[in-house]
Write a protein that binds this DNA or RNA. Sequence first.
DNA 1: AAACCATTCAACCGCACCCAG
DNA 2: TCTGGGTGCGGTTGAATGGTT
Length: 538
Amino acid sequence: MTSESEEKMISKNSVDSPYVEEGNTGGNVGGNGPLKKGPWTSSEDAILIEYVTKHGEGNWNAVQKHSGLARCGKSCRLRWANHLRPDLKKGAFTPEEEHRIIELHVKMGNKWARMAAELPGRTDNEIKNYWNTRIKRRQRAGLPIYPPDICMQALNENQHNENMDNFSSGDIRHSDFLCMNVFETPQFNGIELNRQLYSPALLDIPANSLLDIPTSSLLVEGLDSSYPSKSLLSSMHPSKRPRGPESIFSGITASSCGVLPVGNQYPNDGSMRIVQSFGFSSAYDHDSISNHALSSSLIPGSHAITNGNPSSSEPTWAMKLELPSLQTQIGSWGSPYSPLPSLESVDTLIQSPLTEHTQSCSLSPRNSGLLDAVLYESQTKKNSKDSCQPTSPASTVPVDVLDTSSHELHETEWEAYGDPISPFGHSSSSVFSEYTPMSGNSLDELPSVETMPGFKVKEAAADTKTQMIFSRPDFLLASSCSCPNKDATKDYSLLKDAFGPLLGDDLGKDCKQIDTSASSPAQGCGHDSRAWNAMSTA
DNA sequence: AAACCATTCAACCGCACCCAG
DNA sequence: TCTGGGTGCGGTTGAATGGTT
């Protein structure tokens, strides 16, 4: 809200504030009465300003005592920090600031306060609101949250920092990992984690298999409170929770940018196959490309993988930023051979890399990532939508089309997948929050496994004895934990070893919990157990 | 003009951290 | 080492506002 509008509100409140009726004389000063809530009035502001001028910032709880302001200390601090501070910069964000915010978010995730520290005169609240607004706009536009150039830039910075900071510290958390670089860079710690995960020595699965599993998936996606077996993190002691999204988020950035080497993603080892959960770099993988369903069905957030019933009322491009829906769409994480729920949604996913508009888009100002560019991008998509009607399934995608520079790939991938599945849209902590389903499939309304539309998909896939590709990292964990199979037990052991230092004992607890519930597919690991059964059957 | 809907943003809430006692 | 107060942070809410039907 601008300062003008704020003034309006304040003046309005000072005139007919409903809070006057709350027993606050003048609507402002309540003395020892009940603390007032709601919008601040100008007189309250004046009191607070006067107080801070006299006594300086801090000791906010004393404000009420000494000034008689009927506001709690927190409220005073917030008001001062967000509105009354003299060094505040009012007004809309400049393009430079917007660009900076995007950059910072790439690096930091939802660390609004830290971002605010990088933007003089701006508050965390302001940035947070801006970002959320931006997310929504891009959601509606079906655009990636992070422009590829910024992504690349952040990655480059990270690589630089990586070089600079290698072995610079010895975070004990990593002591159990072999051959691991210890980065203490504030950003992209997720890369570090990913690297840990990549170690074949740690996980009895092909290292590449995990390469593209965003760390957020490993640590966050399965962690929704609605997740049957209680997620790892949600059950973790708060102090053990990875604090701050950067550690998880950035892994997404790196791997999903396709910058990290993507090798043979699907080795024919007959064991559990894991593909990148976000399906992002799978598009770079020729094998996966040839597997037409894979590249599309793995793309999270898309209707193609959500419930098989894409809303026809939704514009194709305005793909909802629904979660990769591990909770809500079992099938979406399952076999790439799953029946495609919707041509339309699949088309949405596959059309762009091949279409003319994509190329033209790469020349658009969208790279700025700024809102005007977003609008431009959106408009471009709308304009080109008709001319970009998908005519060929992904299987017909010539491999060489995708075999371009990574940056171009980003462009096309982003265009193709749009925001919902943009891994960059999943800043770790916001993987869920940012993708709060806009439609009915709320995570909190997780239907039973059996009632999930996607469930049949996976089951059917299992019945065909096709190659099960469990892209879900949490499936990996859950199935490893619950599987009575020897190998899986080994997996569990390895996983526990791998994650234990990171997640603490709760991992073990969780896995035990999963173990106990494994016999009851509908409980504990729930759908994952079902998936496991399906896999066993297969 | 009214109703409805979408968007924005200030403010609140709960949690976690820090630090002094 | 424990405890409680102060503070900071991130997520969420709800009122205000603007746009559309």
